[in-house]
Each structure stands twice: as structure tokens, then as C-alpha cells.
């Protein structure tokens, strides 16, 4: 029982227009049976200051990450989370958040690891909703628990581990961090806390395309022609490429994964969630410094 897609013309040119909805679409469909709106933010308290009516909160630190192992929750944990969020296996889930959907895209990527079929992003996130002058509420919904099946997480298709990345060298890599992190001038995004990588720089041969290039000033995704200029002309991606995107912990690269996969239609894109906090601390993996991608290391 999925809900009709947003027919907005600005989405029609994308490979998977069914993955995006506009703020207006969300407002018009609020409360429709089968639709669950999810807010996922960087700031763990932002939802509590006001959110879209009926939206439930899913936090990536406290809900999606395993509390002990550096990994995501398992099938049982996901089923439990879905149940208490009022999400059924056939629900249409629309995710939105702060920082132009940075964390919302991350949550969407995790939903996809569990094969939840109909999960979409609200284009522009909170910023666009607010700029449109739409309302928030403080009222927290109490969803009726659902019977969500226990689905085993599938890590093989859209997720890359460090050994996968080593085997991938020679194929396109996209580094979506800031230019300072890419060149090795620093290990963290400007203004963010140190997250413990022992070395700075980038994976050799990776092209630098900061994630935010994919969004326009109002926080919505850029049109396809501009995305082509950035990723095909700028970073040299071409049809048939097998691509791995990474950042610092895999959250910004989820955003780029969404762009490459659903907007531009590259079928083989994986997100390396270990990202720089893992690679930059691994013993004896190759690292390049400076603003140039550097050569593919010989194996």
C-alpha cells in the first residue's frame, strides 16, 4: 500500500523520482494511512523544539547505531525500532532533517540496508520546510506498534568495508569531505570535533567532491544537468562505473550515495561507512596527501 509518488516536475528528470518528495507534497499527504514521516537530525534535541505534525524521531547515534560494536543495529533491533515508530514493512517512509538532509540521507541508507522498499527524502529538509513558512508542532505522536518482520541486514550491495575498498582501488572513489580534510591539512571537518583518525589525507586516486556541491542554496538538490557537470565532467564518473563514496564516518557520503544512485542512476554505488575514521587509523594502507588524487597504488 504505497502512496503515489510526487509528480512535481523538478523530480521527473532524475533516475528515481519516486525517491523524492517536496515539502508541499508532505504537507498535503500528512495523516494519510500508510505514510510515516521521520525526522533524523544531527542535533539530538532539534525534533523536541518543533517538528512536522505526526513525524516520529529516529536518531542515528542512539537508534541506528549498535550501542557496543561499531556497526548498525541488527534485524531484531531494526524491527523493534520500526514497530515502536509505527512503521510497517509496506509503509511509505519520508525522512527529513537538519543540515540539508545530511543525517536524513544516512537514515535512508540504513533503511535501505534492511531492504525497506518505499523510503523517500523530503527535498530540502527542515530548512526548506521553514523557508516555505510551514508549521511545526511540539506534539509528540504515540504510534501504534506494528508487526515489523525481522529482516537480516544486507551489507553486500550498498555498503563497502575496508577490504572491499582495498580491492576496489583502480575504480572510482569519491571523497566527499571538505578540501582541508582531503588534502590532509586536518582530520576533521572545520568546526567539528576530532574523531580520532591518526593520519590525515585521502585514499589514493579518490576524487574530491564535497557533498554539499549537490545541493542548491535553498537546500534542495541541484538539477540533473548541474549534477552531471559536478560528477561526470568534474569527477570523471561515467556509465557503468563501480563507485565507492566515503567521508569521515559515512554520514555525508550517504548523501552522495543518494545523489549518485537515485538522482543520477549509477547502479553500483557503495558507501564506505568506516570512512576516514577507519582508513586514517589503519596500519599500512596507502594514503595520499595534497590536493591531487594521486596514483592508484600497486598491489
Amino acid at each position: 500500500m504505497t502512496i503515489e509518488r510526487d509528480p512535481a516536475p523538478q523530480f521527473a528528470e532524475f533516475s528515481h523520482p519516486e525517491r523524492l518528495v517536496s515539502a508541499q507534497w508532505v504537507e498535503e499527504h500528512l495523516g494519510e494511512p500508510g505514510l510515516v514521516v521521520v525526522e533524523s537530525d544531527e542535533d539530538v534535541l532539534l525534533y523536541e523544539t518543533g517538528h512536522i505534525r505526526g513525524a516520529v524521531k529516529i536518531d542515528w547515534h542512539t537508534d541506528l547505531n549498535d550501542p557496543v560494536t561499531r556497526d548498525y543495529i541488527d534485524g531484531e533491533g531494526f524491527a523493534e525500532l520500526m514497530s515502536r515508530s509505527g512503521i510497517s514493512r509496506d509503509s511509505t517512509v519520508v525522512i527529513y532533517g537538519d543540515k540539508t538532509n545530511w543525517w536524513a540521507a544516512y537514515a535512508l541508507w540504513v533503511f535501505t540496508l534492511f531492504g525497506h522498499e518505499d523510503v523517500r527524502l523530503m527535498d530540502g529538509g527542515r530548512a526548506k520546510w521553514e523557508a516555505d513558512g510551514r508549521e511545526y508542532t511540539l506534539e509528540v505522536p504515540t504510534p501504534t506498534p506494528t508487526e515489523y518482520p525481522i529482516v537480516e541486514r544486507s551489507d553486500s550491495v550498498i555498503r563497502a568495508f575496508r577490504d572491499d575498498v582495498l580491492a576496489h582501488l583502480g575504480n572510482p572513489l569519491i571523497d566527499v569531505r571538505s578540501p582541508e580534510e582531503y588534502s590532509g591539512a586536518r582530520t576533521t571537518v572545520p568546526g567539528y570535533p576530532e574523531e580520532g583518525a591518526l593520519r590525515a589525507g585521502h585514499i589514493p586516486s579518490a576524487q574530491s567532491v564535497p557533498w554539499s556541491k549537490a545541493v542548491a542554496e535553498d537546500g534542495t538538490f541541484r538539477p540533473l544537468s548541474e549534477l552531471n557537470t559536478i560528477y561526470r565532467e568534474g569527477a570523471g564518473l561515467k556509465d557503468g562505473d563501480d563507485i565507492v563514496a566515503y567521508c569521515r564516518i559515512g554520514e555525508r557520503s550517504s548523501h552522495t550515495w543518494f545523489v549518485l544512485n537515485y538522482l543520477m542512476g549509477f547502479p553500483n554505488v557503495r558507501n564506505y561507512d568506516g570512512s576516514w575514521t577507519e582508513w586514517g587509523s589503519l596500519v599500512r594502507v596507502p594514503i595520499a596527501l595534497g590536493t591531487e588524487p594521486g596514483d592508484v597504488p600497486s598491489r
Binding site: V44, L45, H61, T62, P67, P193, E194, E195
Partner: peptide, 14 residues
């Protein structure tokens, strides 16, 4: 640290 995550708490330490 459990409620907001250890990472976020670093901001306050700073």
C-alpha cells in the same frame, strides 16, 4: 553520554 552519544558530549568538554 547514552542519551546524546559520547561524540556529541565532546562539545561540552571543549
Amino acid at each position: 553520554s547514552q542519551a546524546v552519544s559520547p561524540l556529541r558530549l565532546r562539545g561540552m568538554t571543549g
